[in-house]
Design a protein around this nucleic acid. Structure first.
Length: 400
DNA sequence: CGAGATTCATGTGAAGTATACCTTTAGGCTTAA
DNA sequence: AAGCCTAAAGGTATACTTCACATGAATCTCGTA
């Protein structure tokens, strides 16, 4: 018995196609970043004053997902910290991704998270916001060294909250006596800065850097380099990398996507016991990534969101025509009694529809049907083959 | 026939409520001297 | 007497509700050609 299991483990570890799968993970930061020399230089030169103990300008970085923004910034961050350490300079750089669901919702949570990063401690709830704010200042003052805050996906946070919190941040320096603080904002949305309060814009956008999308050839370079380290020799079929790059290039040159694709293809091939990663694996992986991403979102959504989504799916299947808020709400009511859940008001329901829209699960623009009032025209924006899967998840978690 | 006025079905904003959780404070109990 | 624990008091954020008003184009109304 035991020997059987061991055999499984043995074969498992022997047959692996990878040398080091971690290299393909998005969290891995490679030693060099191809095709980003220019941007990295710019970032470095903007942040360089920190090494002389001066306050660097605030910086704003644009670029679609997977264009190497975060990676490049992290890279510069590490280099600067290394340098600072060598020369015994006090300097502190903190990175915060505002998109993580738990954090991004409110100003309070963002400050709480920042404080935690800086070594403080705040309860998850219950404190007055201005007290949290004060504590934040206090902690920074205690540091007594220049601080650079990197706020990733900052547009997400502002969308949820308001730009008031950015205003607070940029104004922070005037309340600090011991320390200077610089802010690096990273955003996917190119128009983001324009939508801000002018005061915030001028102060946050002292410097701007744009990260253009990678083209297919650049993506290939990146993939080749990483694949060499990650996979064993001759594991990748001809053309896999090229196709992988092509797929990702179609999605606005998203390198993260390309790497995910490659990794998942490898995993799939391995699980099937293949010796090679083929283009078929790549196609499978493409589907799987989409599916995983969406099912993740769906299964971690709050119950009322799930119920709402379920109602939409059901109604869409029944009536092929366009569906509207009112109809969905009726279905939702039935669902609630079936699932023995409380029924929310139409007011709240409307907000949930809006949030589902924001999450990208549905498409629900507000339209006016003239004499017949105003409503949202709701459409699922999820591929059909995934809907079935979602239904299973929802049924399970709702107990239907 | 065309310009306003109406109308519908919900969007949306503001303010209020219930719940969960946090800090502070004061009283009571335990402990060590 | 000092130290520790507990319960109550006083606050806040969050998710939701209630109330009330805003929307915007199809449709209706009515004056005019």
């Amino acid at each position: 018995m035991v020997s059987d299991i061991n055999k499984i483990f043995d074969s498992f570890s022997n047959d692996t196609l990878f040398i080091n799968k971690f290299i393909l993970q998005t969290s891995y930061s490679p030693g060099k970043i191809p095709h980003r020399d220019n941007q990295i230089e710019q970032v470095a030169s903007i942040l360089a004053p920190a090494l002389r103990g001066e306050k660097p300008s605030n910086l704003f970085v644009y670029g679609q997902t997977g264009t190497g923004k975060t990676l490049s910034i992290q890279f510069v961050k590490n280099e600067i910290l290394k340098r600072a350490k060598e020369n015994n300079l006090p300097l502190r750089i903190e990175y915060l991704n505002c998109k993580m669901r738990k954090i991004s919702d409110t100003e309070y949570r963002i400050f709480a998270e920042l404080i935690k990063k800086l070594g403080g401690n705040v309860p998850a709830t219950g404190l007055p916001t201005d007290q949290v704010y004060n504590k934040f200042i206090e902690i920074i003052e205690k540091e007594k060294r220049p601080i650079i805050l990197i706020l990733d996906e900052i547009d997400q946070a502002v969308k949820k909250i308001s730009d008031g919190f950015l205003y607070n941040l940029t104004r922070l320096n005037s309340e600090l006596s011991q320390t200077q603080i610089s802010i690096i904002g990273i955003s996917n949305d190119l128009k983001f800065l324009d939508s801000l309060d002018p005061r915030v814009r001028s102060s946050l956008g002292e410097e701007e850097i744009v990260f253009p999308p990678y083209n297919a050839i650049q993506l290939q370079d990146i993939l080749k380099e990483r694949a060499e380290q990650a996979f064993k020799k001759n594991v990748l079929d001809n053309g896999v990398i090229a196709k992988c790059a092509a797929y990702a290039a179609r999605e606005h040159g998203d390198a993260r996507r390309a790497l995910d694709l490659l990794r998942v293809s490898g995993e799939l091939a391995e699980r099937q016991g293949c010796k090679k990663v083929t283009i078929e694996h790549l196609d499978l992986a493409n589907e799987k990534i989409d599916k995983d991403k969406i099912t993740d979102v769906v299964s971690s959504a709050p119950k009322q969101f799930q119920l709402t989504l379920f109602s939409i799916i059901n109604l869409t299947e029944k009536t092929k025509e366009k569906i509207y808020t009112g109809e969905v709400y009726n279905v939702y009511n039935e669902m609630c009694s079936k699932a023995k859940t409380e029924v929310l008001t139409q007011r709240r329901f409307s907000d949930i529809i809006g949030e589902l829209d924001m999450m990208g699960l549905i498409n629900a623009p507000v339209i006016s049907k003239g004499r017949h009032g105003r409503t949202r025209e709701i459409k699922l924006s999820v591929a059909n083959n995934i809907i079935e899967k979602i239904k299973v998840i929802l049924k399970e978690s709702l107990g239907l």
